[in-house]
Simulated assay, not measured.
Amino acid sequence: MRLIQVAQRAENLDRAAEFYSVLLGTRPQAVFDPPGLLFFDLDGVRLLLERGAPASLIYLAVPDVRRLMEELEAGGVEVVAAPQVIFRHEDSKLGPAGTDEWMGFIRDSEGNTVGLVSQLPGGGPPV
Rank of each mutant, 00 (worst) to 15 (best):
59 Y>L: 07
32 F>H: 13
17 A>G: 08
38 L>H: 11
81 A>W: 11
78 E>L: 14
101 E>Y: 00
1 M>C: 01
76 G>W: 11
37 L>M: 13
122 G>K: 11
39 F>Y: 15
18 E>F: 06
73 E>Y: 04
49 L>Q: 00
111 G>I: 07
104 G>M: 04
63 P>R: 10
112 N>R: 01
103 M>D: 05
57 L>F: 13
95 G>V: 06
41 D>W: 00
26 T>Y: 02
111 G>M: 01
17 A>Y: 07
124 G>W: 12
23 L>E: 04
66 R>F: 04
87 F>W: 14
26 T>V: 08
74 A>E: 03
4 I>G: 09
82 A>F: 04
19 F>W: 06
42 L>E: 02
22 V>C: 05
42 L>Q: 03
123 G>S: 12
15 R>D: 10
56 S>N: 14
108 D>Q: 01
99 T>G: 05
120 L>W: 10
66 R>M: 08
10 A>W: 02
118 S>G: 01
126 P>M: 09
14 D>C: 02
24 L>S: 00
23 L>V: 02
2 R>N: 13
121 P>L: 14
29 Q>L: 15
14 D>S: 13
7 A>S: 12
112 N>A: 01
58 I>W: 02
72 L>W: 03
59 Y>G: 06
121 P>S: 14
83 P>F: 14
13 L>K: 09
110 E>W: 00
79 V>L: 14
14 D>K: 10
5 Q>E: 13
76 G>T: 10
73 E>C: 08
13 L>S: 05
52 G>D: 06
2 R>Q: 14
96 P>C: 02
18 E>Q: 11
12 N>D: 15
64 D>H: 05
25 G>Q: 11
53 A>V: 05
11 E>K: 04
37 L>W: 14
83 P>T: 11
113 T>C: 09
27 R>Q: 15
101 E>N: 11
18 E>C: 03
36 G>T: 06
110 E>T: 01
65 V>C: 14
4 I>D: 09
96 P>S: 07
5 Q>S: 03
97 A>E: 14
68 L>D: 03
37 L>Y: 15
100 D>A: 10
64 D>R: 07
110 E>C: 01
120 L>M: 11
77 V>P: 04
